[in-house]
């Protein structure tokens, strides 16, 4: 089955049409590995510092995608997602002296994140809307404060000296190896997300987001759906946290600051929370802005807020919505000015 079979001048015969459809469907199902593989190959040729940057973007991308489970799939808001991220970070940091297998740490960190998320869900089971959002913020803030109250977490000083270790003989301290390692982990996570997105469960999630009353009337267990989605989000955020501290080498309290949770939401919105890869795009843009443009400007929040505002007021679909918007604009221009009032 080669790509050439898609290029036919005449309408394909029935058998061919089926094969084309199958190819299109697999294309959808396998877009994650393909895209990431391409990205991986491109970045492999970058200089070391850019590889490091790309890895950071990738990790934040996973974090944003995990938050989008709540912001995009569930359609609600969260101002405390940094908490699950932080759970993964500090778990791996606390384990630094045991020199465990990095993949094992990553999976365990995910489970820790999921555990925190499960606890959060139990507490907020009966809440929704503004009350729910409020709780996400409270949860995030309380965990942040705990970093200072619990001596073992070292508050402001953080936990330095976290080594990623080595995997299959490759020393992950080297950015070029770490890149492939992170790519593989993120790739698996995104692939799983894609599968869930397209599954019956995924559609149930969309249904309960779009019309909760009707969904409940249809017998969809909206509460348990929400719980499962939040736990998943916590898992992937924990994984992202593990990768993050393995790359950065230090766990610091800043990452759990509540404004960071807001930044994560911003990544989802800028990239487009209605599109699968949207948050990833948003994360790339955000990290690029922060490291390239806003480096050394302590009032960067002014611009970040401005971008956020523009998105909310004018571009609610984010960057991923641009192609659609442009097409619409072109269509309207073509229809001429004497159209409807």
């Amino acid at each position: 089955m080669s790509i050439d079979s898609l290029e036919t001048e005449t309408a394909p015969a029935p058998a061919r049409r089926d094969r084309v459809a199958w190819l299109a469907r697999s294309g959808e199902r396998f877009d994650v590995p393909v895209v990431l593989l391409l990205a991986g190959l491109v970045v492999a040729f970058f200089p070391t510092n850019l590889q490091f940057l790309a890895t950071t973007m990738l990790i934040y991308g996973l974090l944003a995608m995990s938050a989008n489970l709540i912001v995009g799939w569930l359609g609600t808001m969260t101002f405390g997602h940094a908490a699950f991220f932080g759970a993964g970070i500090y778990f791996v940091a606390l384990m630094k002296d045991f020199h465990l297998n990095p993949l094992l740490l990553v999976v365990s960190a995910g489970l820790v994140g999921a555990l925190f998320a499960a606890f959060f869900c139990v507490v907020t089971l009966r809440l929704s809307g503004i009350a729910f959002v409020m709780m996400t913020m409270v949860f995030g803030q309380v965990l942040y404060l705990l970093l200072f109250t619990i001596k073992a977490l070292h508050g402001d000083d953080g936990i330095p000296g976290v080594l990623p270790g080595s995997l299959f003989g490759f020393n992950l301290l080297l950015p070029k190896y770490f890149w492939w390692y992170a790519l593989a982990v993120v790739g698996v996570c995104l692939f799983v997300m894609r599968l869930i997105n397209r599954s019956t469960f995924g559609y149930a999630v969309l249904a309960s987001r779009d019309d909760p009353v009707r969904a409940a009337a249809l017998g969809l267990p909206t509460r348990s759906i929400r719980t499962r989605v939040v736990v998943l989000a916590g898992f992937f955020a924990g994984v992202a946290g593990a990768l993050f501290v393995q790359q950065q080498g230090i766990a610091s309290s800043d990452t759990l600051y509540w404004l960071n949770s807001g930044n994560i939401v911003l990544m989802c919105l800028v990239g487009g929370r209605g599109h699968f890869f949207g948050p990833m795009v948003g994360a790339v843009v955000f990290v690029w802005l922060n490291t390239q443009l806003f480096q050394g400007i302590n009032y960067a929040n002014l611009f970040i807020g401005l971008i956020f505002l523009v998105i909310v007021l004018a571009w609610p679909d984010g960057l991923s919505g641009l192609p659609g918007k442009t097409r619409g604009l072109i269509r309207r221009l073509r229809a001429g000015k004497g159209g409807r009032p």
């Binding site: 101002f79 002014l302 007021l313």
Partner: peptide
């Protein structure tokens, strides 16, 4: 900011206000 959002939902208002807050924080620095 807010005059444009009177007919939007609570969540949109919340986000716009959050964005405004970020701007004010940056401005104050």
């Amino acid at each position: 900011v807010f005059a444009r959002l009177y007919n939007s939902g609570h969540m949109i208002n919340l986000l716009a206000a959050y964005a405004l807050m970020l701007m004010l924080i940056g401005l104050s620095i």
